[in-house]
Design a protein around this nucleic acid. Sequence first.
DNA 1: GTTAAATTTGAAACCGATACCAAAAACTTA
DNA 2: TAAGTTTTTGGTATCGGTTTCAAATTTAAC
Lengths: 331, 331
Amino acid sequence: MPTISDVAKRSGLSKSTVSRVLNNYPHVSEEKKERVQKAMAELEYTPNPSARKMRGALTTTIGVVVTRIVNPFFSYLVNAIEQVAYEQGYQVVVFQSNEDQEKELSFLQLMQHKQLDGIIMASIENDEEVIETYLAYGPIVFVNEYIQHMNTVPSVRINHIAAAYEGVMHLLNQGHRRIAYCTGGLFEQQGQSDDRNIGYKKALAEKGIEVDPQFVFVNKHTIEDGESVGRAIFQMKEQPTAVFTGSDEVAAGVIAAAHELNQRVPEDLAVVGFDDQPIAKITYPKLTTIKQPVDDMGRLAANLMIEALNGTTPTENETVLETKFVERDTT
Amino acid sequence: MPTISDVAKRSGLSKSTVSRVLNNYPHVSEEKKERVQKAMAELEYTPNPSARKMRGALTTTIGVVVTRIVNPFFSYLVNAIEQVAYEQGYQVVVFQSNEDQEKELSFLQLMQHKQLDGIIMASIENDEEVIETYLAYGPIVFVNEYIQHMNTVPSVRINHIAAAYEGVMHLLNQGHRRIAYCTGGLFEQQGQSDDRNIGYKKALAEKGIEVDPQFVFVNKHTIEDGESVGRAIFQMKEQPTAVFTGSDEVAAGVIAAAHELNQRVPEDLAVVGFDDQPIAKITYPKLTTIKQPVDDMGRLAANLMIEALNGTTPTENETVLETKFVERDTT
DNA sequence: GTTAAATTTGAAACCGATACCAAAAACTTA
DNA sequence: TAAGTTTTTGGTATCGGTTTCAAATTTAAC
């Protein structure tokens, strides 16, 4: 690999001059500039990023942390972030935390040594205090998840409480009284899923209905999870007549279980999904769900990050995007 | 950020000794070792990766190139690779090429300056000669895709010809004679999809059937693509009675289009998918498809890469894994 | 009790870039 | 034409590690 010294030698100039050409500094005569460029071309020279980072240069690399990339919500989110970043000359590297605190921490640490200029967190495993520590090394942006009352980190999210409330209220208004509930997280806990839990509870409460713990399924993420939830529901003596799920995947699994057990959707069980991913249009019947503006979320988060990297103070500290209830055929 | 010099100062020793402790070199007395470790802990010291790379150290980072991460086949593949790599102490960074040659090239270049130890390519946009150039900078492993007769790069793949042949032959044996065909690539071209094309043509040829260009759909990837293919098929005067698709996504889209147009699957149109992703179990009817051992592919590719990085000559240069025809309800 | 060998330690060079500073060259102005 | 600016260029220190080499110390061997 040729180095800057090789280019200097070949062009008969000094490293300093080559560096100036490389970084488009003023005060380089047109003649020498061309000589340098010629030498660089001939040697197929490319600057060594590690050496640059040593001098504190930006890496133009943004990290994105998600729990699992196989979750379509995250892969679409990453895709949107990547699009914007690429346009602005930034690289994106994706990290899967697998919900592991340690792993997440090791990603945050990459900022310390400028391997990453900034980090967009689409999932949060560590505490507020821990994350705050790393703000010293570069900007952090929350997307999808957030930490309540933490206003040192800009966030892009939806109103999970309202979204869940709307979904459950729709079912209630249709006359359902026994409504099961699936979440990717826990039922009694802080954070995102907590917000959806609140929406669920609030809707039920307004109709004077108590939460039946038997109807609550926690830590459900995948199609398989949804199938097992469906099977569990259909073998209860007193079955729920509807289920509000945490994702389209889980919902699709529930529907598949219904087919298997010869149960009708929505007659025997109404189903509401979450996300409005492409999959929502290929279940049969088509899935009623809550549309998250995943592309907008990704784009906004990326823009917030790039603004922060450019030293602009963020326009908005907390952006809450609208969800949309999409009624199809499962309710 | 504390540096190695800070640790040296605090422990009253030299940088060299600290470096030796850091890298587990022999010939460091137990006493000094402890002093260094104590100082490192107190300062919360972490070594600067850029500085290390400058001296040619490995980065323990593996790059994976895919076309689009939102394609579940790729996200599952990446997931499997990541698992193995993480166990072995390697980081994985994922790149989306979006089928852009330039972009792919810029990833390959990262190896030149040891930003990446090696690259696993799950998609290939550049020519053999170009890729060969980068072998000088680190190992490359092909997975899923490959380049024929290129034995300088180990590859993990399936037999696309046989897989497509088996799927199409299944339809032929059921009596279908007008069989449509979807591919993610082109119909007349080199590479992966070309292999599937060969299998399709071969099966038809054996039954003495000519390819009807009208029945061939190219560059189809998504559920939406599948829906449009379905709509196109159902409005033909002389419709195909079956369709062999390039992915479960496309197949699911075709099935969705059938529902929309009140056509029955498989009675009016039989459908065969490819991949056997989770989505194959939630279409209605459940999708007949060809199972790719995506986890095995990812794991094997990762292991090949790690072997190569450890200097071991690869056990196998070309690993061809078995696919499995999974008959469900759409045929 | 020497001498040889092995272990332990530190000083200094080095990796490849950037940044500061001073010297040289070119250009203004009086 | 001399003095003062401005532009252009190169030398050298620096970032934070690793590596080489030699010196100092300890251990082993005779």
